[in-house]
């Protein structure tokens, strides 16, 4: 005897990319949170010593010779929301089935991403800090470098979404939504990094 189940057509990939991106974003949040946690542990645990003249307590963390280029860092922090806004514009355009503006928004997001990478490299150049100079320096490069990689991932995401957008996938709005989600994450993550690393130092 053969029983047949009531059949249905092929299953729907129901916002797969959005959910998967949410999972990736969660993972990346943990990555940055863990790294910031480590940063805080080292900052809190940095030894305090008395200066040579006995007048000051010096914390062996951020070396006095290093000046953080705050303008570039703040510019980066300000650029992220704009990139996220552009990513949201792409979602809006996608909902209105406006392919041209969707592509435009995506490419602006990507370009802002490149600008952010450029600003980060400028920060490195302006600081002139050697990666091997000490604990602070290597940790600074590790966390900002990881952030840089995540931003590069965002640029790649923008590129893929843009390619699909100009490739005529008009009904593929999941990619655009997921893309926006990722850029929101980048904005939030950088804000945290900016606060802990560039502002609090």
């Amino acid at each position: 005897m053969t029983l047949a189940l009531p059949s249905a057509p092929a299953p729907a990939p129901r916002r797969q990319l959005v959910v998967a991106t949410a999972l990736v974003v969660s993972a990346a949040v943990m990555l940055i949170a863990g790294m910031l946690g480590m940063w805080m542990r080292f900052r809190a645990g940095a030894p305090v010593r008395t200066s040579a003249d006995g007048l000051e307590q010096i914390k062996d963390w951020l070396p006095a010779s290093i000046k953080i280029p705050e303008v570039a860092a703040n510019t980066m922090a300000a650029t992220f929301p704009f990139a996220a806004l552009m990513a949201q514009w792409a979602v809006y355009a996608s909902k209105n089935r406006d392919g041209q503006h969707r592509s435009l928004a995506l490419i602006i997001t990507g370009v802002l991403g490149v600008a952010i990478v450029n600003a980060q490299l400028a920060v490195y150049a302006q600081m002139g800090v050697g990666i091997s100079d000490g604990a602070y320096q290597s940790m600074f490069y590790a966390i900002t470098g990881t952030m840089l990689l995540l931003v590069s991932g965002g640029i790649v995401f923008s590129a893929v979404a843009f390619f699909r957008s100009v490739g005529g996938r008009n009904d593929d709005s999941h990619v655009i939504t997921a893309h926006a989600l990722y850029w929101y994450f980048l904005t939030a993550a950088f804000t945290a990094v900016w606060f802990f690393v560039y502002v609090q130092k």
């Binding site: 949170a33 863990g34 946690g37």
Partner: peptide
């Protein structure tokens, strides 16, 4: 200020 706190916030 322990790293665990920030990880849990994450």
């Amino acid at each position: 200020s322990d790293l665990g706190a920030l990880a849990l916030v994450g």
